[in-house]
Amino acid sequence: MDRRFKPGDKVRVIQRSQPGHVRTPMYVRGKAGVIERVVGSFPNPETLAYGQSGLPYKILYRVNFMQKELWDDYEGKPDDSLEIEIYEHWLEAN
């Protein structure tokens, strides 16, 4: 499968509302991060949740965010970060 992003690429999680079962939590939507690694292709949970096949598979990435990008009032240290898995259709180049 073609991969739109590679490790080190700057990305942004798409800010959109979508009904139904979704694995992209609100707190990362619209936030900028960096691709940590490509995990591989996996069935799409958004259709698996409705008893469908999950096809076509989606590319899954691990994306790293600086905590201060996620939370304006982050109280920890400036280097603190967070990693989460995001499917390709939730990412755009930044």
């Binding site: 694995r23 992209t24 939590p25 995990v39 996996f42 949970p45 899954l60 905590q67 920890g76 240290k77 280097d79 603190d80 970060s81 967070l82 990693e83 989460i84 898995e85 995001i86 499917y87």
Partner: peptide
């Protein structure tokens, strides 16, 4: 650095 992993997918 504290790095949190949100185990949200596969």
């Amino acid at each position: 650095q504290v790095r949190v992993h949100d185990s949200n997918a596969d």
